[in-house]
Simulated scan of single mutants.
Amino acid sequence: MKEDQRPLQQRNKSPTSKLFTRGAAYVVLVLLSYTLGYLSHTSPPQQQQLQPPSPVFQLADSPSQLDNFRVTAPCANSPLPPHLVFPTILDRVFNGSSPYSNFPPPYLSSFLKQKRIKGWGSYGAVFQHLIKRVKPQVIIEVGTFLGASALHMVNVTRELRLQTQILCLDDFRGWPGFRDRFKDIKMINGDVLLFQQFMQNVIYFNATGSVLPVPFSTASGLEKLCEWGITADLIEIDAGHDFISAWGDINRAYRILRPGGVIFGHDYFTMADNRGVRRAVNLFAQMNNLKIQTDGQHWVLDTSLAKHN
């Protein structure tokens, strides 16, 4: 038998010691991997920990973040002249005839009051201030209810001897539960008679030649006005008071505002603060380099005073 020629140290290493050495190395490797994984999971990068959420007004620096809020419906290539505004509405909305003709029908007469006027901020000085300054040929009111502010604007334009046409855009459905406060507004087979009472009010004040309803939701109505080429010198926004509604109305209305015109609205100072109308107005003004003015409870954006960078 041939003698083992390996060095003495190598000959003394047993299989058990080899197994122990490899096992210990494996255990160390597992523990090290686990430790590194635990530390990386419990200690996020410092930049993520310290970076605060972006304020709402910084969205103006990142337009892509507002893509879902942008209005992209097509508009007419050129605006209609003011004298064609009412004929266009009569043709496209009322089949060519006035909605005031033979109104009210006999079956409705007993359900309507001779006049029923109610509004909020409808008689503020802002109306006279702006109408006197702008001298509008066309006014569009977004959110009308019973027509208090529209009829007040009729009186102002008459005092100033202006030939002004006023379009009142509203679905005339009120809001869920509004009849809890207006029980005298009747309902027939689930149809609340808000639109009919508005028309009765216009007739009572002999304003049928100055005021024409556009009985659709603000979103669909404003998009159609833009598509038909109808624009205005002065636009009042006073419909939904949440941020999304106000933001949509302002953006759509701005597209049909004549160059140098004024857009304004109510409810700038409310408890909603930066969660409602004020937030929408402030963000829109910042994105479009417009200066916000206030007049009583109303906000005003005068495009003739736009800031130029």
Rank of each mutant, 00 (worst) to 15 (best):
L80P: 10
S101Y: 07
S17Y: 09
I131D: 07
K13P: 14
Q128V: 06
L8P: 10
K13C: 15
S33I: 15
A125C: 01
P105I: 14
P105H: 12
A76H: 07
H41L: 13
Y100S: 04
Y100D: 02
Q47E: 13
V27F: 11
V93W: 02
Q48W: 11
N68R: 14
F94R: 02
T35R: 06
D67C: 09
P63A: 06
P45I: 09
N68S: 15
L84E: 05
L112E: 01
Y107F: 12
L39T: 10
F20V: 14
F103P: 07
F69E: 04
P136R: 09
E141M: 00
F145W: 08
P106N: 15
Y123N: 04
L59Q: 07
S54H: 06
A25D: 10
A60K: 04
L108T: 01
Q137L: 10
I131P: 12
P52L: 08
D4M: 07
L32M: 14
T88H: 05
S97L: 07
L90M: 10
V28K: 08
F94P: 01
N102H: 14
E3C: 13
H41Y: 15
Q137M: 10
A73Y: 01
A60F: 08
A25K: 12
I131R: 09
N77C: 05
D91L: 08
L146F: 05
K132Q: 11
V93K: 00
A125L: 06
P63M: 06
V142G: 05
Q128E: 12
Y38H: 13
T21A: 13
S62T: 11
F103D: 01
S40R: 09
N12F: 11
P79S: 11
S110N: 02
P87I: 01
E141N: 04
G124R: 15
V28L: 12
A24F: 15
A76R: 00
P136I: 06
L66H: 03
G23C: 12
A24V: 13
P87H: 01
K132Y: 08
Y38V: 15
G147K: 02
L31G: 09
F103H: 00
P99Y: 04
I89H: 00
L36G: 13
P99V: 06
P136F: 05
A24Y: 15
P53C: 01
L36N: 14
R133N: 10
F57R: 15
D91C: 05
V93N: 00
Y38S: 12
F86A: 05
S122Y: 09
Y38R: 14
R22F: 11
F111M: 07
A24H: 15
L80T: 08
I117T: 00
Q5G: 14
P74R: 04
P104S: 02
F111R: 05
Q48Y: 12
V71D: 04
N95Y: 09
L108V: 00
S109N: 03
S40P: 10
T42N: 13
P45T: 08
L146W: 07
T42Q: 13
P105F: 12
N102R: 01
R133L: 11
L66N: 11
S122H: 12
P81S: 04
